[in-house]
Design a protein around this nucleic acid. Structure first.
Length: 1073
RNA sequence: GGGCGAUUAGCUCAGUUGGUUAGAGCGCCACGCUUACAACGUGGAUGUCGGGGGUUCGAGUCCCUCAUCGCCCACCA
């Protein structure tokens, strides 16, 4: 047995963490079996990206999951918390590539001698990175106390996930839900990949607005000889295929004017001038410009061509509604391959065509005149402007601020780019996911986030799933081109038919016919795409392709190879698609792929659908929506019943934390300084429904441990000087932006004082436990009789039952802050400040000792259980110690404590103890105690000085308070001299009127006439004010007649009560005079 | 441009279906190392509940409106 006297006065969080996590793991408490008969409860972790270490947001996310898992485990569920990490395709590759460039000056293309070798080498490096960070992440989760089933650890790029991804892709492919199409994509010229809209951010950039003239080919007399267009991206003119003018400029102007007028009516004054200017501009157009636009429109209808300067090409003048007559010249250039809106115009006017002018690396390609080829878009811009100016076709240059799209990953500008892409058709899939939520199968909490989810899905935009990256699940598709020498359709079709026959024989011979799906390209009929489901099918295709290439390798005479030989002669198979899938494709499968799908495992049967998903609001669309549709598609069943969207962690300025802002906080720093329990409790305490978690951040000086507030300025300094000791220290910013000297400085951790709340609470509980343990050394388990319980025992048991109910209910509804606050108040104010203080006096009386011990041990036991999900280490530490002195605990009935609080039963609400009368009675005692203490302080009576007091109250209250006399002595140093209805204040007393009572403290030794009078006058004024306000209310005819009778009655009673108090104060004052 | 959320003590936040004189923690002031705890105890001070309207006997709470901040989505030749 530990020597309880030697327990440190401060909770040693580091020791507890080191001791208990390994213990839990060894006991296998976190492991869940699929054949366990208990009801399942399953949570899949939102897999953290292996891009870097976990931040506070992860700490919050995982703390909440752990709180629920631990509670459910105690409630008797078979809990599986499925852990894992995400390969985070583009993000991880970008990080590794950037490092490669910074540290070795290499790009991914120069890493190996061949493209193949480069790819392999880069992927190998990313795996190394992944191993390193995954290890770090897992260690962080363990230090946080997360009770994940580590035996089931998964990674979105591991073999099993790969199988699930291929299976899903194959299903979609065979189902005609995956197609290849040319679409305008956001092209990252640095990473040379398409990125999704979600991976693009806009940044205001200083730019210009250039006005160019395009000459008209053979203008008729009286018609314009050129049209003027304006652009912020002049280099794209090389890819123009048309200029558009509105088909009905007059009507469009009317509409614009109408809209403007509507806006003007309710626009604030400061915008009026601007609107007026726009109105004037429309009016001016009516006079001068309309005619011209209508002429241009007519010319467009006639099929007039324009000369596209610098290219020698002619382009069409078309009529399209995209051109807004009220803006610029009223004409707009159309570059379908490099602008989203222009692309839409092309879709309406296919005849104009589209010209892609860019290579994948962001340089201009062979579609532009030779002099521009190979230039970057930026260089091309300068060249185009110079040449247009030289040709006297540059009309005007305006300065203008533009919101320029940047890639979130490489931070370089995005070029819109027409490229072949893999798409998933979203119509039916999105609908199914919408229905799941609108019909209530999946519940989103808080409910307001339903809207985000539904709105996004209802757009049903097809999902571009291909990424031109090397890190990820490679698209399992091969392209086959059928050879043909024929140019008659029917003959070509016959050859295609032959190909199909031979191909089918080939896959049958390989035994992979069930794992192969062949689809013909809609436009190019000789092109086929083959999707492979299994490893075997993939290697057969690859094998065939390789053997095909090396014709020197003579095919075997095995009849099995006959179809292969035929196939060789009629078609070419291209290498497997170079692309990989969007990282969200594998994340979408997470809830079922981690449980073993596509295998029908016992886990899948037992744990799917999972119970709850806990995540952050910014991935409701990217992740949650896609998991629902993927789950429904693959499993025909929702992936989870409830989704809880938790708040975000912000810094003291209300900004999101991020590495690039330098305001991030590493949970390990917080754990080291405050302990994991404090971090967890602090998070739960702040995790309210509507507010984000705002945490002012401080640097902790490594020299003197002073806390220096983090400001927008100092958070991005490579070295910070301590306010107190004036010594410099490094920050997380030094690591990435500092000199070697900065990096060598001792590092100042970024922490937040907000976690002091949790630390103080843990320490309070530790010391209360220590008190209990010290006083339970002679504990012998013996159930108490109901009659032996004193008022304070019943009060505490009543409060415990109530709080148990509150906490259980709050956690069931994801109200973490409510649960934490409820426990905080109960443990600190009721258990510590009152019960323990009272029990001290009882422990001194031998015949009262045993009962008090039983109740104390029991309530501590329950409190530990209730707190365990939030503060697992502390509660386990105390649980073990308590088990040594009091292995059997309870009140009327005893049970043996479990080996660990981890597997202890969650407290039930014991209704028999809930007693509002007792709680009200106890409140009276607390009020009198407060009054006595208050008078002591106000009269400056030294703490050690004993005082005497008397209480005027009814007989009922006397019965209640008399037994409490010892507590007044021990807790307020006050001895009661009289109780009852006829009590009169002593000669020199300080008096306090209370509800139905008067407290008089004898202060003859400290009497100060002036001070006492001042105190009473203040009290009198307050009461008088209250009486007035009540009087006013009650003399209001409307209040008396319209308010509910009970409310009026309450007010009347209150008035009588307050009047009485006022009288007693006035009496006391009179006595002084 | 559309949507969502926030605005309560110096700071960070609670505040149930409208009903006494609006709460907590930190910080602040005073006193106290009383054998669980100074990371503590006891007591105290601190608010035009963002502004303006409205509904109501009664509004921090419901409605309208304005302002500020934050987030999401869309758009910007």
């Amino acid at each position: 047995m530990s020597n309880l006297k030697d327990l440190p006065a401060q909770y040693d969080h580091a020791a507890a963490q080191a001791k208990w996590y390994p213990y839990w793991e060894k006991q296998g408490y976190f492991h869940a079996d699929a054949d366990d008969p208990r009801p399942p409860y399953c949570v899949v972790i939102p897999p953290p990206n292996v891009t870097g270490a976990l931040h506070l947001g992860h700490a919050l996310n995982n703390t909440l999951q752990d709180i629920l898992c631990r509670m459910k485990r105690m409630q008797g569920y078979n809990v599986l918390w499925m852990p894992g990490t995400d390969h985070a395709g583009i993000a991880t590759q970008a990080v590794v590539e950037r490092r490669l460039f910074e540290e070795e000056g290499k790009t991914r293309h120069t890493l190996g001698k061949t493209p193949q070798e480069s790819r392999e080498k880069l992927v190998a490096r990313i795996w190394q990175w992944k191993e390193q960070y995954e290890k770090r992440i897992l260690s962080q989760l363990k230090q946080l106390g997360c009770s994940c089933d580590w035996q089931r650890l998964r990674f979105t790029l591991d073999d099993q996930c790969a199988r699930a991804v291929r299976e899903t892709f194959f299903k979609l492919f065979a189902d005609n839900k995956i197609y290849r199409g040319k679409r305008l994509v956001n092209w990252d010229t640095f990473l040379q990949t398409a990125v999704s809209d979600d991976e693009v951010f806009h940044e205001p950039t200083k730019g210009h607005f250039w006005h160019f003239n395009y000459p008209v080919v053979d203008p008729r007399p009286g018609e314009p000889t050129h049209v003027t267009i304006a652009t912020t991206r002049p280099e794209t003119m090389l890819g123009d295929t048309a200029v558009a003018v509105h088909p009905d400029p007059a009507k469009a102007l009317d509409k614009a004017e109408e809209a403007l007028n509507r806006k003007r009516l309710d626009a604030p004054e400061k915008e009026q001038a601007e609107i007026q200017a726009q109105c004037d501009s429309i009016a001016a157009r009516r006079k001068t410009k309309l005619q011209e636009l209508e002429t241009l429109r007519d010319m467009a209808k006639r099929g007039v061509k324009l000369e596209l300067p610098l290219t020698g090409r002619t382009i069409s003048l078309i009529a399209d509604e995209w051109a807004k007559p009220e803006l610029g010249s009223g004409c707009v250039k159309i570059t379908p391959a490099h602008d989203e809106n222009d692309y839409q115009v092309w879709q309406r006017n296919l005849a104009i065509g589209a010209i892609n002018i860019m290579n994948t690396d962001g340089t201009l390609n062979d579609s532009v005149p030779e002099k521009y080829r190979g230039l970057t878009m930026k260089k091309a811009r300068e060249a185009v402007i110079a040449d247009m100016e030289a040709a006297e076709l540059l009309v005007e240059t305006e300065d203008r601020e533009i919101e320029l799209a940047h890639s979130d990953r490489s931070k370089t500008p995005i070029e819109p780019y027409l490229a072949d892409q893999w798409f998933v058709k979203m119509d039916e899939l999105a609908q199914s996911a919408m229905d799941a939520v609108s019909d209530g199968w999946v519940k989103i909490i808080p409910e307001r986030y339903k809207k985000t989810y539904i709105d996004w899905l209802s757009e049903k935009r097809d999902w571009p799933v291909g990424r031109q990256l090397w890190w990820g699940h490679r698209v399992p598709v091969w392209e086959i081109v059928v050879h043909t020498t024929k140019n008659v359709t029917s003959e070509i079709e016959r050859e295609i038919g032959d190909f199909r026959d031979v191909f089918n024989r080939f896959i049958k011979a390989c035994g992979i016919e069930n794992d192969i799906c062949l689809v013909q390209d809609e436009r190019r009929r000789v092109v086929f795409r083959v999707c492979a489901r299994s490893e075997e099918a993939m290697s057969e295709l690859e094998g065939f392709r390789k053997r095909y290439k090396s014709l020197s390798d003579p095919p075997s005479t095995d009849p099995r190879f006959e179809p292969e030989l035929s196939l060789r002669s009629i078609a070419t198979i291209e290498p497997q698609s170079e692309e990989v899938l969007d990282t969200w494709f594998s994340s979408a499968l997470w809830p079922h792929s981690t449980l073993g799908w596509p295998e029908q495992t016992p886990e899948l049967a037992h744990f799917y659908p999972t119970s709850t998903l806990i995540t952050s609001r910014d991935i409701i669309t990217l992740w949650v929506a896609r998991m629902v549709l993927a789950g429904l598609y693959n499993m025909h069943e929702i992936p989870f019943h409830e989704v809880f969207i938790h708040p975000k962690i912000l810094d003291g300025y209300g900004e999101t934390m991020s590495k690039s802002k330098g305001n991030g906080v590493d949970p390990l720093d917080v754990i080291e300084k405050f302990g994991a329990d404090s971090l967890r409790f602090g998070i739960a305490y702040l995790c309210t429904e509507t507010q984000d978690v705002r945490l002012p951040v401080e640097f902790e000086c490594p020299h003197c441990h002073a806390l220096i507030p983090q400001t927008k300025k100092n958070r991005t300094l490579p070295r910070v000087e301590c306010d107190k000791c004036k010594q410099p220290f490094g920050t997380q910013w030094s690591q990435s932006h500092g000199t070697a000297e900065d990096q060598a400085l001792p590092r100042g951790a970024a922490v937040s004082e907000r976690f002091e709340l949790g630390r103080n609470f843990c320490n309070k509980l530790w010391n209360a436990s220590r008190f209990a343990l010290m006083n339970l050394e002679d504990f012998s388990a013996a159930p108490v009789k109901d009659s032996e319980l004193l008022l304070e025992d019943r009060w505490l048991l009543s409060r415990l039952a109530t709080v148990t109910g509150e906490v259980t209910q709050a956690l069931a509804e994801y109200r973490f802050a409510d649960a934490a606050r409820s426990l905080y108040g109960f443990a600190w104010d009721e258990f510590c400040s009152f019960y323990i203080e009272m029990v001290k006096a009882r422990f001194a009386v031998p015949e009262q000792r045993a009962v008090a011990q039983q109740v104390l041990a029991h309530v501590l036991d329950s409190l530990l259980r209730l707190l365990h999900p939030m503060t697992p280490f502390l509660t386990e530490e105390v649980w073990q110690l308590l088990g040594e002195v009091a292995p059997h605990r309870g009140v009327l009935k005893h049970d043996r404590a479990t080996k660990s609080v981890c597997v202890a039963a969650w407290p039930e609400v014991d209704e028999q103890w809930i007693d509002k009368t007792i709680e009200a009675q106890f409140a009276k005692f607390q009020t009198v105690m407060g009054a006595v203490r208050n008078i002591r302080m106000e009269k400056n009576i030294p703490p050690r000085e004993p005082v005497q007091f008397s209480v005027k109250c009814d007989a009922e209250t006397v019965k209640l308070l008399k037994p409490m006399e010892p507590y007044f002595l021990s807790m307020a140093g006050a001895t009661a001299t009289a109780w009852g209805p006829n009590v009169l204040p002593p000669e020199r007393a300080a008096s306090k009127p209370l509800e139905g009572m008067e407290v008089h403290v004898d202060i003859s030794a400290f009497f100060d006439m002036g001070a006492e009078r001042a105190r009473l006058e203040k009290e009198r004024d307050q009461l008088a004010k209250f009486v007035n306000s009540l009087n006013a209310k009650l003399s209001n005819e409307n209040f008396v007649s319209r308010a509910p009778a009970n409310v009026v009655e309450e007010q009347r009673a209150k008035l009588a009560e307050v009047r009485e108090q006022l009288q007693s104060v006035e009496a006391a004052l009179g006595k002084l005079a």
